[in-house]
């Protein structure tokens, strides 16, 4: 271990540990403690109840759909920002972060108004028989909106640093553009795409504010897990709230581990050794 000649370790580490303990560890620990104190039978009964399972299904499927939409749209968006020059490119680049900057409740009422049956998009869609607001489609749109920047921002730097020589080699060898994209470019982007996907998916699983306005919130149909945990709390059913929240916490930690692994892999490709 290196010699310590810089001052301030006790002070800064002390502040850090106290803050982390009070703000992060204590509440999460209390939640786990509460959920654990239920005992395995009660816990299982709550987390495997029909309504809870329906909420997991809706949350997972909608998050999956939103993430797939973002995979295509996010990759296309990163591609045009990096590879092409067009008027307004920097503006579009800056706009990508809007979903992160816009508070989720604001995004929620804006999307609901757009997609309500009398909204700018809702009215024409209703005319062709597609209902978005108060259906799972609305949940997907809210999730896609709030998690869009993840894929763009993880893929963008890798796309910027792709070695043109590899594409050139493909062209010299007579590969078509599509072949080069699929067999030369995509494999290089894959680690960062996967990392972006897992971040986007994780965010969608936990999203609340943007969704509850547009979802309709009908149990078994358009009720996400985060809302169910919230409802149980409002009903003073604390054990149920703790149990359901702990399921979300487990999902979050699983996604954190997956993302960590994928990002460590992605780094291996981007940091030049």
């Amino acid at each position: 271990m290196a010699r310590r000649i810089l001052p301030g370790l006790p002070l800064t580490l002390g502040i850090t540990l106290v803050y982390v303990a009070i703000i992060v560890v204590l509440p999460l620990g209390a939640l786990v403690f509460k959920a654990a104190s239920l005992g395995p039978e009660d816990y299982w009964r709550i987390v495997s109840s029909e309504r809870a399972v329906a909420s997991y299904r809706i949350t997972l499927l909608c998050a999956l759909a939103a993430t797939l939409f973002n995979l295509v749209f996010g990759l296309a968006l990163a591609w045009i920002i990096v590879r092409y020059r067009f008027p307004g490119r920097r503006f579009v680049d800056a706009l990508v972060d809007l979903p992160f900057a816009l508070p989720t409740a604001v995004a929620g009422i804006a999307l609901t108004t757009l997609f309500a049956s009398n909204g700018w998009f809702g009215a024409p869609l209703a005319a062709i028989g597609i209902k978005v607001a108060y259906t799972p489609l609305g949940i997907i749109i809210a999730m896609a909106f709030t998690s869009l920047p993840f894929i763009v921002r993880t893929v963008q730097p890798v796309l910027e640093e792709l070695d043109p020589a590899l594409e050139e080699a493909g062209q010299t060898l007579g590969a078509s553009d599509l072949e080069i994209f699929l067999r030369v470019i995509l494999p290089q982007l894959a680690p960062s795409l996967l990392a972006g996907l897992s971040l986007s998916f994780a965010r969608s699983l936990g999203e609340f504010g943007a969704i509850i306005f547009i979802a309709g919130n009908q149990p078994f149909d358009t009720e996400i897990t985060a809302l169910l945990a919230f409802i149980r709390l409002e009903e003073y059913d604390y054990p149920a709230s703790a149990a359901i929240a702990s399921v979300m916490l487990i999902a979050a930690f699983t996604m954190l581990a997956v993302t960590n692994l994928l990002q460590a892999r992605a780094l291996r490709y981007t940091v030049k050794g």
Binding site: A30, L31, G206, A229, F230, A242, A245, M248
Partner: peptide, 22 residues
């Protein structure tokens, strides 16, 4: 420590709120 600092980034705000209740 780095991982613990980053945890709130992956935890749903609802879970955070519920945790504070406890």
């Amino acid at each position: 420590l780095l991982i613990v600092i980053e945890i709130p980034f992956s935890v749903s705000p609802i879970v955070a709120g519920v945790a504070y209740m406890f």
